[in-house]
Design a binder for these strands. Structure first.
Length: 625
DNA sequence: TTTCCTTTGAAGTCG
DNA sequence: CGACTTCAAAGGAAA
């Protein structure tokens, strides 16, 4: 693991990464550039690490891997989020990130993938560690629903205001470091535990005593279950315990990977059986026929559009249907079958950590939770991230094996036909202008957006023929960040190109396309004011924006965040032309969307961050008066 | 009931 | 090839 070695510095710097996210980093520009590079290296190294053993795609993937992206702290509008964020800081930066990483990561997760699917000793260890948990709660397992409901943390679960202090440690009443995972599938679980034998399809054991959820009236455990659904089941209890792989168990209202008759373009390669133990794709997944494995359980990734409808009924009915109808149905199903994309590293991480965050912060909204998770993701050490990258890589591999003919494009097409996100995008674009009205005062309410219709937008300013001069968002038909700068109440003197102020740290790199462009993300992160906490004492003045000079950082930051949101590169207007935008994914869209909603934070944070010194995030979170 | 939000990463499309 | 979009999970909120 050469990368690790080399990157230890960085690694040390998990903090750095996280801090950047938090906007605390205020490294000097020079440092930034190097840091960025490091970050990029780290990322790539993570990938490489995971793929080193792997093969082919590794290289390409590594290259593709975008540098750590900036966080958009656009705002965590939601108070809950803010609060959570506040709490979070405390711990994040005080102690090594994730001192008590709740999940025991198995170093050699790969082992599960070993031929024969047997678990490695390590994995077994893991299992052993987890199983005890089962004992903890006699009732230990509950229906999925119960799990879900359990999520709403009861007071007992809530650690308190400082729950974030030790992100890695949950002080759940039960004291089990493991947080139940509402979503059933532990990313690792599939890799480790999946054993079909134990699994009884479709019979989620309604067990465990449970409280009744006030809201739903559905039984639920008093506390977040000690046992995470995705944790390995002990052999003895397996049958009674809901299968860790959520996808196997029908879930209420969830797209359960339904059994489908068709959908696979290609038969599973026999080779699959070898890896069957891996990931979400159970060995059975190598179905004798299509997606059904021996148990008749479909692959998690396979979903039909009408999930809810499909229950036993649909299956039964289908059975009853005439041959002709069957044929038709099959065709339809084939069309409908939706093989989901394999989860990426972050998604795996989210799955794993979501419950934890929910428990800690008592947040319910996924959007808010995801923001936190995003930050935490950045805060993760390289090693930790590497684990997820590795898992993701394996997931992809397995997915490829299972669905040789599948391509993400399939899902694209499916949605396009159906509807869905496109609308969203279009809508956003179309309405982007309208949103501004919502936030008359950008500083106060989050989206620092003023009326786009205003004349100073890049479009108006430069005209269509000079789109090169447009800021990224404008080019994407999103909100004009430059305009915002100049016009916003928070506005700072617009930098000539709208950049500098805005993107101090990055500028150097941003100016130069190419490699740096991808590395630009970190910067944006740095800009993120939202950092929950400040970095301890050091670098008080480093924050580029803070230092940036005359104008209050706010605008610049806003711009950065707005532009950068997801698109770090975009933040640097001047650089845009150079294609720094490339570094960002969904730059405009996400930003626009995020801005569209009145969420608070971003602006607050900016406004709060006085030009002077860095303020603890806590301040930021509160509304400004 | 459906879509949005929000995150990062992978993979797709488009010019 | 770069820029940009879509989708993956999740579940409350909004439409």
């Amino acid at each position: 693991m050469p990368q690790l070695n080399g990157g230890d510095d960085l690694g040390a710097n998990d903090e750095m990464i996280s801090f950047k996210d938090e906007g605390e980093q205020e490294e000097k520009i020079s440092e930034n550039s190097s840091a960025e590079r490091d970050l990029a290296d780290v990322k790539s190294s993570l990938v490489n690490e995971s793929e080193t053993n792997q093969n082919s795609s590794s290289d390409s993937e590594a290259e593709r891997r975008p540098p750590p992206r900036s966080e958009t702290f656009r705002d965590k509008t939601r108070e809950s989020l803010e609060e959570a964020a506040k709490r979070q800081d405390g711990g994040l930066f005080k102690s090594p990130p994730y001192p008590g990483y709740p999940f025991i990561m198995i170093p050699d997760l790969t082992s599960p993938y070993l031929p024969n699917g047997s678990l490695s000793p390590t994995a077994r260890t893991y299992l052993q560690m987890k199983w005890p948990l089962l004992d903890v709660q006699p009732g230990g397992l509950q229906s999925r629903q119960a799990l879900k409901d359990a999520r709403s943390p009861s007071p007992a679960h809530i650690v308190g205001p400082f729950c974030w202090e030790f992100p890695g440690q949950f002080h759940l009443s039960n004291k089990v470091p493991v947080v139940q995972h509402p979503h059933h599938v532990h990313p690792l679980t599939p890799l480790i535990t999946y054993s079909n034998e134990h699994f009884t399809p479709g019979n989620p054991p309604p067990h465990l005593q449970t409280d009744v959820d006030p809201k739903t009236g559905i039984p639920r455990p008093p506390h977040p279950p000690d046992i995470s659904p995705y944790y390995p089941l002990s052999p003895g209890t397996v049958g009674q315990i809901p299968h860790p792989l959520g996808w196997l168990v029908p879930q209420q209202g969830q797209p359960v990977y339904p059994i489908t008759t068709g959908g696979f373009r290609h038969p599973y390669p026999t080779a699959l059986t070898v890896n069957a133990s891996m990931s979400r794709f159970p060995p059975h997944m190598v179905p004798p026929h299509h997606s059904l494995h021996t148990t008749g359980i479909p692959h998690p990734a396979i979903v039909t559009p009408n999930v809810k409808q499909e229950s036993s009924h649909s299956d039964i009915s289908s059975l009853n249907s005439s041959k002709q109808t069957d044929a038709k149905k099959e065709e339809e199903k084939k069309k409908q079958v939706h093989i989901k994309k394999p989860l990426n590293a972050f998604m795996l991480y989210m799955k794993e950590m979501r419950a934890k965050v929910v428990a800690e912060c008592t947040l319910k909204e996924s959007a808010a939770i995801n923001q936190i998770l995003g930050r935490r993701w950045h805060a993760l050490s390289r090693e930790e991230q590497a684990k997820y990258y590795e898992l993701a890589r394996k997931e992809r591999q397995l997915h490829m094996q299972l669905y040789p003919g599948w391509s993400a494009r399939d899902n694209y097409a499916a949605n396009q036909q159906g509807k869905r996100k496109k609308r969203k995008r279009e809508k956003q674009q179309a309405e982007s202008n309208e949103h501004r009205e919502y936030f008359p005062n950008p500083c106060l309410s989050l989206p620092p957006i003023t009326d786009l219709s205003a004349p100073k937008k890049c479009r108006a300013r430069f005209g269509l023929d000079q789109q090169n001069n447009w800021c990224g968002p404008c080019r994407r038909k999103k909100k004009c960040i430059r305009y915002i700068q100049g016009e916003g109440s928070c506005a700072s003197p617009p930098s000539t190109d709208g950049s500098l102020l805005d993107s101090p740290p990055l500028s150097p790199s941003s100016a130069v396309p190419s490699p740096s462009s991808k590395e630009s993300k970190p910067q944006t992160e740095q800009m993120q004011p939202l950092s929950l906490t400040m970095k301890p004492a050091h670098q008080p003045l480093h924050h580029p924006h803070l230092l940036a000079g005359p104008p209050p950082p706010s605008l610049a930051q806003l711009e950065n965040s707005a532009a950068a949101g997801k698109t770090p590169g975009a933040s640097h207007n001047g650089a845009l032309e150079h294609g720094d935008v490339s570094s960002s994914r969904q730059p405009g869209s996400s930003v626009a969307s995020s801005l569209a909603r009145p969420s608070a934070s971003l602006c607050h944070s900016h406004s709060l961050i006085p030009s002077t010194a860095p303020q603890p995030l806590s301040l930021v979170t509160k509304s400004i008066e």
